[in-house]
């Protein structure tokens, strides 16, 4: 039994998502371990972003169950929750493939919006805030401190008062991650965080993600195309192809899986039979185990 099956942070069970006639995700099951960096990879159109949207509530899955488990034993059935309650209650935060920042607001403001819910309570749902009660001032200062902490970690402190839309692409990616972290998530879902980054920025991203895993006790689930990033930082890799899971294991196991190689590189006709044979065998052996 792999370690991610022992201490499960998020379990996806028999997830299917159908858009009209298209079955984007088909009976997908996998676990995300607590404190792991889990990578979800697969060729274009494999259904990765759909899985993300199901986990974060933007789509309601056709079938299946998605469970988030906190350390204190609380469980949340994500497929039954409203999208905004998933970050709020189940503490699952996300970023987007096409960066979605509050462009006209400054970096600091972006990070403050992420702390909306605790601040709302601290402001007695605005009433205390309007009257200027001290409890809110204190909470706001704490929120600014958290924002500063994450700006520092993302290397954005020097841009704190600039509009988010004014940042270069790489910094926007990092800001989006920092913003998600300001919701104090248990699980951080990143949709292609390294896309469009240059090698140096990619390196910085890796260390930021490793930092999050080590120091924040936050599990990370990421979609990524950049195999260097995937192989370097992830503990666990799940491979999707045409909405079906074709491989699941450590980076080394996945790297050498013939089905993964076939899905990524394509195979000659006579090899197809061979691969299919292998798939049947492995399927059989998995059932046997």
């Amino acid at each position: 039994m792999a370690k991610w099956d022992e201490n499960v942070l998020l379990s996806v069970e028999h997830l299917s998502m159908r858009f009209g006639g298209l079955l984007a995700v088909n009976d997908l099951s996998f676990n995300v371990g607590r404190g792991d960096i889990t990578a979800l990879i697969g060729p274009n159109g494999a259904g990765k972003t759909t899985v993300f949207n199901c986990i974060t509530g933007f789509y309601k899955p056709t079938e299946g169950m998605i469970t988030a488990r906190h350390e204190d034993g609380q469980t949340f059935l994500l497929e039954r929750m409203d999208d905004f309650k998933i970050p709020k209650r189940a503490k699952v935060a996300r970023t987007f493939q096409n960066i979605r920042l509050f462009g006209g607001m400054t970096v600091l403001e972006n990070l403050m919006v992420a702390q909306h819910n605790p601040l709302m309570i601290a402001s007695n749902f605005t009433i205390g805030g309007i009257l200027g009660l001290s409890g809110f001032k204190k909470a706001e200062n704490e929120a600014v401190e958290l924002a500063k902490y994450w700006m520092d970690k993302a290397g954005l402190t020097y841009r704190a008062d600039d509009a988010a839309a004014d940042l270069p692409y790489g910094e926007q990616r990092k800001l989006e991650i920092a913003r998600a972290m300001c919701t104090r998530p248990k699980l951080l879902c990143l949709d292609e965080p390294a896309a469009g980054l240059n090698p140096r920025e990619s390196e910085e991203l890796n260390s930021l993600l490793l930092f999050i895993r080590e120091k924040e006790n936050t599990g990370i689930l990421l979609i990524e195309h950049d195999m260097n990033v995937v192989m370097e930082i992830s503990d666990h890799v799940v491979v999707l192809d045409y909405g079906v899971k074709i491989s699941d294991g450590t980076p080394d196991e996945v790297k050498n899986d013939p089905k993964v190689i076939a899905a990524y590189l394509g195979v000659d006709d006579d090899e197809v039979d061979e691969v299919e044979h292998q798939i049947e065998q492995t399927a059989g052996s998995q059932e046997g185990a």
Binding site: R100, F102, G104, V113
Partner: peptide, 29 residues
């Protein structure tokens, strides 16, 4: 002016900027 500096006011402006991002941060839009 007061509201703009409170979480509710920032949420309004965030809503104007990007509603989906708001929901991804746990804001009940």
């Amino acid at each position: 002016n007061r509201l703009r500096r409170l979480p509710i006011g920032r949420a309004w402006e965030a809503l104007r900027e990007d509603e989906i991002a708001c929901r991804s941060l746990g804001l009940n839009t």
